[in-house]
């Protein structure tokens, strides 16, 4: 294509004008059509098979109950801060993804404190009962809520044996982009999936270590050489509500 200015007496046949126009238009349209495609390929490459959740792994937590201190709620604060769970000063209706529970053996009087959160069950009752499939379990064992299709029926809350889910009872402010939340739907611990997908550990685990307790150990339950397996070999572990046989992803050293 030439950009040389035309002289007055120069004449270009009409057909050539048309051809030039169509060539340029076709190039433009092709560019417009291809560019998003190229971008999509780029995005697809970013989510390569390697980075998708895989059932080769099963993420979980081991709570070392001997190290978990009564009165300490570093894990709770870290969770609230990470996910923007600010609350409205109404404990009955405010969201709580992880809570500290003080236990006392009814026979011996032995006391201890443990965190209770979504147990990321292998057979989660919340996933079974959810009518729309909003509650789901990722291939790597993390149980999540699809916030786009949760209708807020709360049947999952009725079914959860650990009361680990919260319904958003009122308008929210200060949501985090990595942790979308909204009034009228149900939510629970995501095991900080956004951090796990970037090879980081959950905020509660990090906070517990930084507080010097190291009571929460995060890792792959399937990894025989990993920290969870090695700790489990040294001490007996248990799950909450073992009668339900849910094979939880969160386990506790025996108490």
């Amino acid at each position: 294509m030439s950009c040389k200015p035309m002289k007055k007496d120069e004449s270009v046949p009409l057909a050539q004008h048309r051809r030039t126009f169509f060539t340029q238009a076709a190039a433009g349209v092709s560019l417009m059509a291809l560019a998003p495609g190229v971008r999509l390929v780029e995005l697809a490459m970013a989510n390569s098979e390697d980075s998708l959740p895989s059932n080769d792994k099963r993420w979980g937590l081991l709570v070392d109950t001997a190290k978990c201190e009564s009165g300490c709620d570093e894990c709770v604060s870290a969770c609230n801060s990470e996910h923007g769970l600010s609350g409205h000063g109404r404990p009955e209706t405010d969201a709580q993804w992880i809570r500290k529970v003080d236990l006392k053996d009814e026979q011996t009087g032995h006391e201890l404190s443990i965190p209770i959160l979504c147990q990321h069950c292998e057979d989660p009752p919340c996933v079974d009962v959810c009518p729309t499939g909003a509650s789901f379990r990722r291939a790597d064992g993390i149980v999540l809520v699809d916030k786009h299709i949760c209708i807020g029926c709360r049947y999952c809350m009725m079914a959860c044996p650990f009361q680990a889910r919260s319904f958003i009872h009122e308008d929210l402010t200060g949501q985090k982009t990595h942790s979308p939340r909204g009034k009228g739907i149900v939510e629970s611990c995501t095991l900080c999936v956004h951090r796990i997908d970037e090879d980081q550990e959950p905020a509660c685990v990090e906070a517990c270590r930084e507080a010097g307790h190291d009571a929460l150990v995060f890792g792959d339950l399937e990894d025989a050489a990993g920290p969870l397996a090695s700790l489990s070999r040294k001490t007996a572990t248990r799950e909450l509500r073992p009668d339900l046989k849910l094979n939880t992803g969160v386990r506790y050293t025996s108490f």
């Binding site: 996933v127 079974d128 009962v129 959810c130 009518p131 729309t132 499939g133 909003a134 299709i149 949760c150 209708i151 807020g152 029926c153 709360r154 049947y155 319904f167 958003i168 009034k183 009228g184 739907i185 149900v186």
Partner: peptide, 21 residues
Amino acid sequence: LGRPDRLIVAMTHYNFRSIFA
């Protein structure tokens, strides 16, 4: 419902393991 506006979701997304569905 928390989100009655999503009634259409309840009519188009089914989890057949759920007695609710």
